[in-house]
Amino acid sequence: MTLIDLANPTRFLKLTERLLPWLAGLTALLLAIGLAQSALAPDDYQQGATVKIMFVHVPNAWLSMFVWGIMSLSALGTLVWRHPLADVAAKAAAPIGAAFTFLALVTGSLWGRPMWGTYWEWDARLTSMLILFLMYLGLIALWRAVEDPSRAARAAAIFTLVGAINLPIIKFSVDWWNTLHQPASVLRVGGPALDKSFLIPLLVMAIAFSLLFITLHLAAMRNEILRRRVRALQMLQAAEQQGQLRSGAL
């Protein structure tokens, strides 16, 4: 099966059915390993045991931006190539991305209180992440507000591409402005600044959360394809009923 074959929703559904159980199993296994490693990780010399919040906060924060990146690629697929699955992929990813962003904000806030002495500060990193969360909600609302799916797809794609400007702002906010948030300690020039005892559980959790996203995304895409089939059949049913009424009236 080539990549272009996946443009066919029926073939995509068949592949998804085969892949999902394996992906779900692998995700559960990696999450279990990651959680065990997180529990056994040593305390930080400054932060103590609160460093354990990093193992859930950082993967959620990375994924919140990664998902918008995936949606931006899908938006290009909708606007430029009119790929049949591009809008399906973007629409299915949005609620999952919103959930990851929400978790990044909540866990960050719960980490901030003992470390900074406050749950919230209107600094560049926190504010740009909050804007990302609001953009996710706005995008979901946009899809729901526009009834015609093709018009909704185009509007959402433009919104997504414009919103992608926020991604480099989030990433570099800690370098461009003075913030309470610490600068990057994993994805940075010169390699990770974290000790192996923290880095390995963090990377395992990041892979586990990424697999969780892929699993949920494929399942949500399958649901979206089925929802569009239901809509098409309901419209066909309505048209047939209208035709029968007309012929009956004649």
Binding site: G48, T50, I53, L103, T107, W111, P114
Partner: peptide
């Protein structure tokens, strides 16, 4: 440690 509730809440919300 003293901030156990913050850690537990983080994992529980996730």
């Amino acid at each position: 440690g003293p901030y156990a509730s913050f850690i537990v809440w983080s994992y529980a919300v996730c």
